[in-house]
Each structure stands twice: as structure tokens, then as C-alpha cells.
Amino acid sequence: MADTATQTIGVQEKEPWFGKKERKLLTDPLQSNNPITVQVLGICSALAVTTQLLPSIVMSIAVIFVAASSNVTISMLRNYIPKQVRMIVQLVVVATLVTIVELALKALSYPVWKQLSVFIGLIITNCIIMGRLEAFAMANKPWKSFLDGIGNGLGYGAILIIVAFFRELFGKGTLFTGTPIVMNIIGPSNETTQYWINTANESSLLYGYTNNGLMVLPAAALFIIGILIWVHRSYNKSLVDIS
């Protein structure tokens, strides 16, 4: 069993530490193999946490961390993991890492932890992570697996942040609510949130804008992801045949 795993890598000449292949591992998930817009994985959390930018950014960082470190762990263990229980082993590694993230977040940023509630824990069942472990980390060396984890985490996070940008902008008229750099971009601000005291009411664009209530509901995320998939496919024609 141990032999097959090493053979798949094949005999390799001295490879550059960060060559073309490695770069592709990072950029592929952002572009032509995006976990959300192409593989349509991890949709559940993408709908739930994207009402505002701050939780989306935190969620992205958490997923990047978990994806990269679980990929590395599994890749290092790949020759020792008994094949019969590999899924359970993967699950234990992911669950451990996610719990570490959750404990750290609870201690460092309690309000964000409250806001993300169960969705941090649900990273365990995020198909992107288990998928990468099965498809990549079980057959590749740690360094490549690390890059693959980072890449897929970034691909997921990028979509999350784009969706959250539009949902927060049109749903609340603000950006970065809950952080010190919160900005009121469009519409009157004081009525919409309790996190900060309105200071620059007149300076915002479109003063008469009324917040769109639909944007804060999960359905809006589905619309935006749908539009993103559309845009992505019309921009990258090679994706059209896959479906």
C-alpha cells in the first residue's frame, strides 16, 4: 500500500522549490478550478456567513488554515494511514484543527465567534476540505499539499468575500461593519446598525438609498453566486464544456 502512494508521484528530477507546477497549485483553484463557482462545493457556509465582510474574512482565514494544515498533516501521514480507516483518520485530523480554530477564535474575538456560531464547527463537514484530502493530500508530498490547501482555501475565500461585499453594501449600505474601519458607503447610515455611531451621514453616496432587505437573506447569496458563475464562465470559455 505504501508503495503505490509513492509511485504516483513518479521519479522526479530535481524540481524547483516553487516552479510552474507549484504556482499552478495556487492559482488553479482561484481560476479554472474554483471550489465554489466550478465545483460548486461549500455552498452551505457561503450562503450563511456572507451577510457581512468581517465574518466572511474570518471564515476564509479559518478555512485556509484548516485546508492547508490538514492537507500537510494527512500528506505526511499518507504512507502510514491504514486504507480501511482513512476517511475516519482524515475526519479526526480536520475535526481537531477546526476545534483549535474555534477555541482560538472564541478567546480572541468573541462577538465574531457568536456571529459565526455553528459555521466554524461545520468546516469539518466542508466538502472542499475532505475533497482535497482524498483527492490530493493522500497522493502528494507535504509541500505540494500545503500549496494545494492554501490555493483551495483562497479560491473559497475569494468568492466568499466577493459575495459578502455585495451583500453588505446593498443590504446594509456599509462595508466592514464591526471593525474599526467601518465605512458607510451608500444610503443613510444611522438607522441601519448599532455597531457604530453615525458621524458622516451626508458624505455617503445615494443618500436616499433604502437598504435592500433581500440582500441579507441567504437567498441573495445564491443569486450572487449564480451571477458569479455566469460571469466566470463567459470569461473563461474552457469551463463551459465541463458542465
Binding site: L103, A104, S109, Y110
Partner: peptide, 9 residues
């Protein structure tokens, strides 16, 4: 992490 989490709560 527990002391910090309790304080934050």
C-alpha cells in the same frame, strides 16, 4: 484559551 474566552464572554 479558556481564561481569555471566559473574560471575553
Amino acid at each position: 484559551t479558556e481564561p481569555a474566552a471566559l473574560k471575553a464572554e
